[in-house]
Design a protein around this nucleic acid. Structure first.
Length: 798
RNA sequence: GCCGGGGUGGCGGAAUAGGUAGACGCUACGGACUUAAAAUCCGUUGGGUGUUUCGCCCGUGCGGGUUCGAUUCCCGCCUCCGGCACCA
């Protein structure tokens, strides 16, 4: 008997797929499409490990499954190749990022081929290709024209190790998301994208998506919409006024002081001369503290300015303080403090001995323990006393509005996107600075603005990009007036290229547009997007923003890019995430060599529920390898002496179809594998032709090489992927025998096998024969029986 | 602190419109084949216990509750992992 030779089989079929261009897809309006997308990788120098495989296998199983169901499946792959590691390598080893990137891409591609996925490599995209980033720049210019890209000098997060500014989304607990270094605040003139303009639409769109709830929640809380009111406070003896944002206008009568953020422009203007020295010192210290230091020290600090605000509802004079617990970049950078009903204000008031006046009571009127931060009944609030505080929010806001001292207001936690990086290896921002004309966008016909070669990639660290040192490149002429001008030297963040790459796959070679409208219309949006959770609020939020903008300017006809999202879990080793630095990386190359790609594919699925982190076990793949050999041997053995199908084999066959289909649909891919194993364990030594063929088709998404070979051995022309996914016959799924559990007082004593339509009496008489049941019943009286046909018979005794 | 998700054998994990807990795989042990080993195949494998072809007790993080019956539902804890974190 010929034995299973994974190497020969996998080599043969990979060559066959390549020769026949089996995975090249074309737009075909007559066929339904399915767009199955992997988050494209950054081609790092360390290559793929088995954790990367997991998502790629998952999406390939789905792609092949959909293909077998008759869909025209787009399953592309490409490279998110701008980024810091290549640039850091360039600095360290003096290798041009273009060269190292090309090397890494070649290695990644080789490794991805090993998976045996049905990628259409004719559609490969690379964000660092000028033909690609031309369109990344084009989108930026469209945003610029529509007022969404602007330049502003402001304090931003700056990573001293990466030597570049960062977006808020790239700062995790005060540290750089990439390298873990504590970030600093730096005042830099930055390009910003007005993502906040889309805050509400980004929030509303989430409701329409088939995404993991966790990601939806994360985006919601990142956007952080709060409804409340702006309240205007006059300043005693001054023309200035302070606007504050509050979500609790109902507590306005309880405001006993106000706080300005140290950076607030009114601090210098309102501070009294007696307090000036103290305030200046406090502000100076606050500014030098890093964001982390400010966060780490939760102990409240602050200084009185000597000024007083006037409460618009009751004319009360309340002191104005400066404290760093108020953030400059949220709301107006100033608050009214209601210590009775806010934990932070309460703490501050206690420390500095400021008055605490309750204005919300329990619904029954009793004064609760303070701070009392939930809704209740209004007290100490003049005309609003007795009102429910929820209603009072509205009533007080309306009252302020009439007086012209306030209005309803909505605030978001999300800030505009800091979009420039002071680094070399990124898309140049296509803007020219002209002394006469100011900022001038590079005309579309001059795109792309390509990256020049440089001698030295070292970031300057001064907030200027290494590009600024390339005179030939920086010095240019103004597209408007033809006078001498300079190019913008900041580059775009790595996210820029990944915001829209999935559009380019639809039409990767288009020179006229980022993709043609009819191809976009056919292929997009993405039906299934597979990738890690780490992009929950970065890439996935930025992409949604880009697509909403492209929708607004008529480039695409949908405004959510990814209909369904699936986050695969990490693969861990020794309880930790695989990483080169921990030295716990499992290399797939050796496993493919030893067991074959099909075994590794199936083990990646079998390792655990796909959405959950899983622990890699080195000998787990052995079991899968044995299973594959059993399938192989079963087919070979059966072909020697094909039996006829029986009713039993037909029932098993249909049961397998139903189980596998249902479990793929619900993403329970680990249990799909066990369904196959159970089937192989129970069918016996040979199987009839139809059962074998069904088995091969059902297994094809998981083990494409093996099943192509078996399909051919069964006398078919390749490819098995031209076959049709079988359908289960509902009648064949009905079992004729069932096992019923016999319980006494809810405790299972035995099981009986009976006909599926057995009556309670049938089961009872069968059960009465069994020793354990007899024991449990002896000397007892049966007072009640519960019979669930096909499931249980429960005898309640006394 | 707030929000979200988990705790099931030696291990990875099955099973939740409440109905046989531990499928499937790994490990381990025993057996067959073999000169021997590997591979393969066949058993056993949650813990305890007895009068051992059979039976009994315990068991899904802990403590309660609802129910004929709870891994599944409810209440209260413990614990682990993620996200956010002075956002007014």
């Amino acid at each position: 008997m010929s034995s299973y030779n994974h190497k020969a089989i996998e080599t043969k079929w990979r060559a066959y797929w390549e020769k026949t261009q089996a995975h090249t897809v074309k737009m075909d309006p007559a066929k339904p499409k399915f767009y199955c997308l992997d988050m494209f990788p950054y081609p790092s120098g360390s290559g793929l490990h088995v954790g990367h495989w997991r998502g790629y296998v998952l999406s390939d199983v789905w792609s092949r499954y959909k293909r077998l169901q008759g869909y025209n499946v787009l399953h592309p792959m490409g490279w998110d190749a701008f980024g810091l590691p290549a640039e850091n390598d360039a600095i360290k080893k003096k290798i041009h990022p273009r060269v190292s990137t090309a090397n890494n891409v070649a290695n990644f591609k080789r490794q991805l081929h090993e998976i045996g996925a049905m990628y259409d490599w004719a559609r490969e995209v690379n964000t660092t290709d000028p033909d690609y980033y031309k369109w990344t720049q084009w989108i930026f210019l469209e945003m610029y024209k529509h007022g969404l890209a602007y330049r502003k000098e402001m304090p931003i997060n700056f990573c001293p190790s990466c030597q570049t500014g960062l977006a808020n989304e790239e700062v995790v607990q005060g540290a750089c998301e990439r390298c873990g270094t504590q970030v600093e605040k730096r005042n830099l003139k930055q390009w910003m994208l007005k993502i906040t303009k889309y805050a509400d639409r980004l929030l509303d769109g989430l409701k329409t998506l088939d995404w993991p709830e966790k990601v939806v929640k994360m985006q919601e809380s990142w956007i952080g919409r709060s409804e409340g009111a702006d309240v205007v406070f006059a300043i005693d003896g001054s023309d200035h006024q302070i606007t504050v944002f509050t979500t609790r206008p109902d507590t306005l009568f309880g405001a006993t002081y106000m706080v300005l953020a140290p950076e607030h422009e009114l601090v210098a203007k309102v501070t009294s001369s007696e307090q000036a020295a103290e305030v200046e010192e406090y502000v100076r210290q606050a500014m030098t503290k890093s964001a982390v230091e400010r966060m780490a020290n939760k102990e409240k600090t602050g200084v009185f300015t000597g000024a007083y605000g006037i409460n618009p509802v009751n004319g009360q004079r309340i002191p104005i303080w400066v404290s760093d617990y108020v953030l400059i970049d949220y709301g107006s950078g100033a608050i009214m403090a209601v210590p009775a009903h806010d934990e932070r204000d309460f703490e501050f008031a206690q420390k500095f001995d400021l008055p605490i006046i309750p204005v919300i009571a329990e619904p029954d009127g009793t004064i609760p323990e303070l701070p009392f931060v939930i809704n209740g009944k209004m007290i100490n609030s003049g005309a609003f006393d007795g009102m429910d505080s929820e209603q009072a929010k509205k009533a007080i806001t309306e009252h302020l509005q009439k007086k012209g001292q306030g209005k309803a207001s909505v605030q978001y936690k999300m800030r505009d996107w800091v979009f420039s990086r002071q680094r070399y290896w990124g898309e140049p921002i296509p803007i020219v600075h002209c002394p006469e004309c100011g900022e001038v966008p590079v005309p579309e016909d001059q795109l792309p603005v390509t990256l020049p070669d440089v001698e030295n990639y070292q970031p300057t660290g001064t907030g200027e990009s290494p590009l600024s040192a390339i005179g030939d490149w920086v010095n240019t002429t103004c597209p408007k007036c033809n006078g001498a001008a300079k190019r913008e030297t900041n580059t775009m963040p790595q996210w820029a290229g990944s915001c829209w790459y999935f559009l380019r796959y639809a039409d990767p070679d288009n020179n006229e547009a980022l993709a043609s409208p009819d191809k976009l219309k056919y292929w997009l949006p993405v039906d299934l997007y597979v990738g890690g959770i780490e992009h929950a609020v970065l890439h996935l939020l930025y992409s949604r923003f880009y697509i909403k903008f492209l929708y607004d300017i008529g480039v695409v006809d949908f405004d959510e890019p990814f209909i369904r999202l699936f986050n695969q879990g990490m693969v861990c080793k020794d309880g930790a995430k695989m990483s080169k630095s921990k030295g716990n990386v499992v290399n797939p190359d050796e496993l493919v060599e030893h067991y074959g790609a099909d075994s590794l594919r199936i083990y990646e699925l079998f390792i655990g529920p796909p959405e959950v982190d899983s622990e890699w076990m080195d000998n787990g793949i052995e079991g899968v390898y044995r299973f594959i050999q059993r399938v192989w041997n079963l087919v070979v053995r059966s072909l020697n002496d094909l039996p006829e199908p029986t009713l039993a084999s037909e029932k098993m066959r249909h049961r397998l179809i139903a189980t596998v289909t249902e479990r793929i649909e619900s993403f329970k891919l680990n249990t799909v594998v066990s369904a196959f194993m159970e089937y192989i364990n129970q069918v016996g030594s040979t199987l009839d032709r139809q059962s074998l063929e069904t088995l091969v088709i059902l297994l094809a998404p998981l083990a494409p090489h093996l099943t192509e070979e078996l399909w051919q051995m069964l006398g078919h022309k390749p490819s098995v992927f031209d076959a049709q996914w079988p359908k289960a016959d509902a009648e064949m799924l009905v079992a004729d025998q069932v096992t019923v559990a016999v319980q006494v007082n809810g405790k299972t004593r035995a099981t009986v096998d009976v006909a599926v339509d057995a009556s309670e009496t049938d089961v009872m008489s069968a059960a009465a024969e069994i020793t354990s049941v007899k024991n449990a019943l002896s000397g007892k009286e049966v007072i009640k029986t519960i019979y669930v046909p096909g499931k249980i018979l429960n005898l309640v005794v006394r």
